[in-house]
Write a protein that binds this DNA or RNA. Structure first.
Lengths: 189, 189
DNA sequence: TGACAAGACTAAGGGCATTAGTTAGTGTAA
DNA sequence: TTACACTAACTAATGCCCTTAGTCTTGTCA
């Protein structure tokens, strides 16, 4: 039981992630994480610059995970299939990791935190590539992706909060909404 | 300068709203509101059951305001026009009152807080009525409104956080996304 | 006028983040 | 092998916020 527990940043992120997924992001406080790791709160400052810093690490981790899930989901499919698979992966991610999803919500503004900004652009980039394969112009792709992101985020956010009154046929609603966003995309070449 | 300042719940909500719209919902603390009203924090407990209670009042107020804006926007238009007008009102509301918008985000689950739940269903109800006029079956309307709500909420939420990278043509993106949700609605009768 | 209730107050507590200063292990270089 | 420096834990203390309990003043109503 030496004085050095040998905590790493990964340990902190893992602990924070597990607390956030279980009890919500708000519960992932420095003291809760420290308690989970068996150390005292101030000791965390040796690894992370305060609460905001820890939350940032968590957001970074979440973005990287989601990017990977998108890559895996799209890999080896034709564009339209790939896009649909990504939407399913997105919703699944939000459902299985509500805390991680929440950690990504306070997105940084363009000039604020370049590293985090880039990481959070990762999933969008994967989608963008698929749309590019469909031959969309950049402008068209921007519009389509914006609508897509909005619908996806809105859907899982409302679902996360049980914001939809009736529990009926959520999967069907999701499918239909996704189809609305996708089906009218013109195919070029 | 009597001991009684004569604070009312409306005063509290107004102060909280103004702080939330200016500095974000998180800044609308009991102490900030008390300071704005020129009283001490504990005095607020004579009117409101703590921070959560104050936030709830704010959410109630926001829902009522948004419902009114929806009614005004839709009034006197044909269903399709009315729906489009409501979407514009929604986005405008979120832009002009970011704090009020934020106050509505932690929606209560169905059995949790009936009064608030009802209030927050107000805007949806206005939309629902318009879709009903188009002759949609209830099931169809549920799907369409879910997609609609998701897209609207997602759009303004991303916009609120400057989540869209490029500042290009946001209005056009919004129009297009709204059209995607609306245009394919079959007209019955 | 006198009692009562509303609505302000002060005092005190607990939780959390944060900073400063301290101490104990660990590894490396003389 | 020993000394030193660095890392990473710690304790102590501060400040902000919410919350509860108890006090006192003021306006109202019988």
């Amino acid at each position: 039981m030496g004085r050095k527990a040998g905590i790493s940043i990964d340990d902190i992120v893992t602990a924070a992630a597990s607390i956030a997924d279980r009890d919500g992001l708000a519960a992932a406080t420095l003291s809760a994480v420290a308690a989970e790791l068996g150390i005292k709160t101030p000791s965390l400052y040796n690894h992370v610059p305060g609460l905001a810093g820890m939350r940032r690490e968590l957001a970074l981790h979440s973005s990287q995970l989601l990017t990977k899930l998108f890559r895996d989901a799209t890999h080896g499919h034709e564009p339209r299939e790939a896009i649909r698979a990504a939407t399913v992966a997105y919703r699944l991610f939000a459902t299985e990791h509500p805390g991680l999803y929440e950690s990504m919500l306070p997105a940084p503004k363009p000039g604020e935190d370049d590293e985090l900004y880039e990481a959070m652009a990762g999933p969008v980039r994967v989608l963008f590539d698929e749309f590019a394969k469909l031959g969309l112009t950049e402008e068209e792709a921007v519009h389509v992706i914006r609508g897509m992101r909005a619908m996806l985020h809105g859907f899982v956010d409302l679902e996360r909060k049980a914001g939809f009154g009736m529990p009926v046929e959520l999967d069907a609603s999701f499918d239909r909404a996704v189809s609305l966003m996708i089906d009218r995309i013109p195919e070029r070449t």
